[in-house]
Amino acid sequence: MSEARRTDDGRGRLGSVLSGLAVAVGCVLFLGGFVWGAVLYKPYTVPTDSMAPTVAPGARVLAQRVDGGEVRRGDVVVFRDAVWGDMPMVKRVVGIGGDKVGCCDAQGRLTVNGEPVDEAYLSGKDASYEKFQATVPRGKLFLLGDNRHASVDSREHLADAEHGSVPRSAVDARVDGTVWPSEGFGMLARPEGFAKLPGGISQPGPMTLLVTAVVSGAVLILGGAAYGPLARRLGREKVPAGV
C-alpha cells in the first residue's frame, strides 16, 4: 500500500472518530436541552389580545415553572383563580402585597406607592381608561393586561373582598419568551420601570441557553453525520486508480 493511501486511511479513521464524537456531543446537547426545558418550562397559548403588543393573540409562549413567592413586580405570569374563571390566564404583575396601586398621574402613568412607573411595553400613553386606587392585601398580587383598553384584569374585580388581587399561590409559571409565531420569537424584556421599587425585578430564565443547546446539538448531529460519508467520498476521489 502506498504512503498516500496509508495517509488517507489515517485521515479517514480520524474523521470517523471526530464524526462520531460530534454526533455524540450533539445528542447530549439536543436531548439534554429538551429534557431540561421540559422540566423547567411549560408551553401556553395566549388566546386573546389582552397582553398585546407584548404577546400577540394566538402566540405560543414558554413559561418557567416558579413558586408564587418568587414573583416580582413587572413579571408576566400564568395563573389560575376561581374568581377569574378557573382557567389559565396571562397577565402582568404591577403590585404585590402591601402596595398601593393607582391610575393615573398627570402624565397618565400607573403609580405604585405614589411612584410613577414608566411602562414602555404599553401600546398607548395611558395606563388605563379608568381611574382607580387599590391596596394589595398581603400575600396577593395585582394583575393588569398590557392592552389596558381590552383586558379583563384586577380592575374588573375591585369590588371583590380581595380588591381584585389573586393569591401568590395561584401563579403556575412566569412567561420567559415567545416561541410562535416566528416573527415574535424571543425573550420578553424585563420592565425597567419597576426596577427602582423595593425588591427590583426578576432575572430572565435559561430559555436562551436551552435554545442554544438544542440548536447547537442539531448542528453537531447533522454535521457529524454528514462528515463521515463526505470524507470517505473525497478520499476515494484522491486515490489513483489501481493503487
Rank of each mutant, 00 (worst) to 15 (best):
Glu162His: 13
Val117Gly: 03
Leu122Ser: 05
Val83Gln: 13
Val101Asn: 09
Asp99Ala: 06
Ser169Glu: 15
Asp105Cys: 10
Val171Leu: 05
Gln107Trp: 03
Gln107Arg: 13
His163Gly: 04
Ala170Thr: 12
Pro137Gln: 10
Asp99Tyr: 02
His157Asp: 09
Gly95Leu: 06
Ala106Pro: 00
Asn147Tyr: 11
Asp176Gly: 00
Arg174His: 03
Glu70Gln: 15
Ala159Asp: 15
Lys91Ser: 07
Val117Gln: 12
Val117Cys: 00
Leu158Gly: 07
Gln107Pro: 02
Asp86Ile: 04
Val136Ser: 06
Val117Ala: 03
Ser154Val: 10
Val117Trp: 00
Arg109Ile: 00
Val78Tyr: 06
Lys125Trp: 04
Val175Phe: 12
Trp84His: 14
Lys91Gln: 11
Gly124Val: 12
Tyr121Trp: 11
Leu158Ile: 13
Arg148Phe: 08
Gly102Asp: 08
Glu70Tyr: 01
Ser128Leu: 04
Val93Tyr: 07
Ala127Met: 11
Thr135Arg: 08
Asp153Ile: 05
Ala127Asp: 08
Ala106Leu: 10
Glu119Thr: 03
Ser151Lys: 07
Val78His: 04
Val76Ser: 01
Asp153Gly: 11
Ala120Phe: 02
Pro167Gly: 13
Tyr121Pro: 01
Gly164Glu: 06
Val90Tyr: 05
Lys91Ile: 03
Arg148Lys: 04
Met89Lys: 01
Val83Arg: 13
Asp146Ser: 11
His149Thr: 15
Val166Trp: 06
Cys103Phe: 03
Gln133Tyr: 10
Val78Met: 07
Asn113Arg: 09
Leu62Asn: 01
Gln107Val: 00
Asp118Thr: 11
His149Asn: 14
Val136Gly: 11
Gly102Phe: 01
Val101Met: 06
Gly139Ser: 07
Arg60Glu: 11
Tyr129Ala: 15
Met89Arg: 10
Tyr129Thr: 14
Glu130Leu: 09
Asp81Phe: 03
Ser169Val: 04
Phe142Glu: 04
Tyr121Cys: 05
Asp146Phe: 04
Asp153Gln: 10
Lys125Gly: 15
Met89Trp: 00
Ala159Leu: 12
Ser169Thr: 12
Ala120Trp: 01
Lys125Ser: 10
Val166Cys: 06
Tyr121Asp: 08
Ala63Gly: 07
Arg72Met: 09
Val152Leu: 15
Arg168Gln: 15
Glu70Pro: 02
Gly102His: 00
Arg60Trp: 01
Arg138Asp: 15
Leu141His: 07
Lys140Ser: 13
Asp153Trp: 09
Gly85Met: 13
Lys125Leu: 10
Leu143Gln: 08
Glu119Gln: 10
His163Thr: 14
Pro116Gln: 07
Pro116Ile: 00
Asn113Tyr: 05
Ala63His: 00
Val77Asp: 08
Val76Asn: 02
Val90Ile: 12
Ala82Glu: 15
Asp153Phe: 05
Arg73Glu: 03
Arg80Met: 08
Val136Cys: 05
Gly98Met: 05
Asp126Lys: 15
Glu115Asn: 14
Ala170Pro: 03
Asp118Tyr: 01
Val61Leu: 10
Val76Arg: 08
His163Asp: 03
Leu62Glu: 14
Arg138Gln: 13
Gly114Leu: 02
Leu143Trp: 08
His163Gln: 12
Ala159Met: 11
Ser169Ile: 02
